[in-house]
Design a protein around this nucleic acid. Structure first.
Length: 499
RNA sequence: GCCCCCGUAGCUCAGUCGGAUAGAGCACCGGCCUCCGGAGCCGGGUGCGUGGGUUCGAGUCCCGCCGGGGGUACCA
């Protein structure tokens, strides 16, 4: 048990005893929290319970603090308990106990920091899930860093985590992509066809067409005016997907599941079953030639289209089927989706849809991260969708390195807009925080190597020699790791930094 | 118009379910160091956009205003 929790428990028990013995009025106690005081002289931990009880107990916080403090049982972790104005109970850890933690940490080794918070609950984290119609861009990198890091921490916090990438291989996006690709492909054979206005403008489309020509010759060509063959769509998407997988690998992410959107539409599959379930619940209506989810009945601003008048399902319908699959078929207890701010409008209706499916909306967390602005020093790198000039994630990794990329993406809370300074990120100077961290690691490794050369073995060291304030501060710092992991619930974000 | 996010030191940003005297890095000024990697150490600051409110206590919660970004499709 974390010493933080042990202290909280001691306070609760002391308050209960104080009430039994009449030192404290019998009233309901709020949840007791223990925190790290801002100032060192206030000790290692502090409880503000007396301040919170003051009004209800109609007594001064200091008197309440005294009354509780005198009932706190001794613990070998705590050297001193003091009551301080305006009404805090402060705890000072014992040096001897701190010294012993070094052994405890060595024994736990790489498992040190793990906490059993999640109790093995199955939790799915879905992130990036960019459509396979182009290379990953810098914004995808932010979602990737958030999702993958959150997965790491939640695994340490005792959740059975699965990382998932939804491959959007069934929507209108890949059809548009195929149309663009086919236009470029035809041009390579001298046909004068226009590039679709809604198509994808990037130069990579031309390269992809050239690749197809080199590999397949004119095998994918159809008579002028006819639509492209299905193979062209499938081969193009497969190539994009391969590139995306490789980019993700370069960033150090390994997914457990690649989920095909197409699979949702199998006969009797998730799409049919989810739609049927919504119908049964009376949440579906037909009007204006389309099929609607009547979310306005649930307090939403408006209804949302599930099936267009053309007969093709919307992205929203697809996502409902997808979440039906996550919760009702695969049985995840918790699901976290990581989306960019451009999906923000999708959040309320998705929550409403999940609730309509009979799933407690608390089980679905959607993390929205704000957009990324790229900079080179003072200069802002404009990302133009119109001209297709984008900075790809691949370029970023090659220029900056995967670790530095991830570090920068996590250096800002998801709620904050982020400036990503390419110049700073690749700079090997004191101005670049990444190299502080790497340098610290190098120094520690250097010390251990040096100790090894001197024949020093730390396995049976004499812990009682660790009395210097700097040494004890280092131990205190190490003890923060499990506390930080413990402080995370599935809804917290992987940005908190301490000590 | 309506909804969401952001506004903290010269700059980039932290700030632990509302707690004690609001911090870090960079930049700037001064000092230090023959020893495990100088990418070092120590010292230097009348900053919470603005106006109200709630509270014993507000950077944190509520309402208004100002500024920036995003959303508001039978796109995803």
């Amino acid at each position: 048990m974390l010493v933080k929790h042990e202290i909280a428990r001691l306070v609760v028990e002391a308050a209960a005893r104080a009430q039994e013995e009449g030192d404290l009025p019998p009233l309901a106690l709020p949840e007791v929290t223990v925190e790290h005081p801002a100032r060192e002289e206030h000790g290692d931990y502090a409880a503000s319970l007396p301040l919170k009880l003051s009004r209800a107990a109609r007594a001064s916080p200091l008197a309440i603090a005294e009354a509780i403090a005198k009932h706190i049982r001794p613990s070998d972790a705590i050297a001193e308990i003091t009551v301080a104005p305006p009404g805090f109970i402060n705890f000072q850890l014992s040096d001897a106990w701190l010294e012993r933690q070094v052994d405890a940490i060595l024994v736990q080794s790489e498992r040190f920091g793990d906490v059993p918070l999640g109790g093995g609950q199955r939790l799915q984290l879905e992130f990036v899930s960019a459509n396979p119609v182009g290379p990953l861009h810098v914004g995808n990198g932010r979602g990737l860093a958030i999702g993958d890091t959150l997965a790491n921490v939640l695994a340490a916090a005792g959740y059975a985590v699965e990382r998932e990438y939804l491959v959007n291989d069934a929507g209108t996006q890949t059809e548009t992509f195929a149309g663009t690709l086919y236009a470029h492909y035809q041009r390579l054979f001298g046909r004068e066809v226009a590039i679709p206005e809604e198509g994808y403008p990037g130069h990579y489309m031309v390269e992809l067409a050239e690749e197809l020509k080199a590999e397949q010759g004119e095998a994918l060509l159809r008579p002028p005016g006819e639509l492209w063959p299905p193979e062209l769509h499938d081969v193009g998407v497969a190539k994009m997907l391969t590139a995306i997988r490789s980019d993700l690998q370069a960033m150090g992410v390994n997914y457990d599941v690649w989920f095909s959107e197409k699979g949702l539409y199998a006969a009797g599959g998730p799409y049919e079953r989810a739609t049927e379930l919504l119908r049964e619940k009376g949440m579906v209506a037909e009007k204006e030639g389309a099929v609607w989810f009547t979310s306005s009945a649930l307090g939403e601003d408006k209804d949302n289209v599930l099936v267009r008048s053309t007969g093709s399902p919307t992205y929203f319908a697809s996502d409902i089927a997808y979440h039906y699959d996550k919760f009702l078929l695969r049985g995840f207890q918790r699901v976290i989706d990581v989306w960019g701010a451009d999906h923000q409008g999708h959040v309320p209706r998705m929550q409403a849809a999940v609730a309509a499916l009979g799933v407690d909306p608390e089980r679905l967390d959607i993390i929205i991260y704000q957009l990324v602005t790229l900079r080179r020093g003072e200069e802002i790198v404009r990302l133009s969708k119109r001209t297709g000039e984008i900075i790809t994630l691949r370029e970023l990794v090659e220029e900056v390195g995967a670790d530095a990329c991830r570090f920068f993406f996590l250096a800002r809370a998801a709620d904050s807009h982020m400036d990503f300074d390419l110049e700073l990120a690749k700079q090997q100077s004191a101005e670049n925080p990444v190299y502080y961290v790497q340098y610290a690691h190098a120094r520690i490794a250097g010390i251990l190597a040096h100790a090894g050369e001197q024949g020093i073995d730390y396995a049976d060291g004499d812990l009682s020699l660790l009395t210097d304030p700097a040494e004890l501060a280092l131990i205190r710092g190490m003890l923060l790791l499990p506390e930080v992991v413990d402080g995370w619930s599935p809804t917290t974000r992987p940005f908190r930094r301490r000590g």
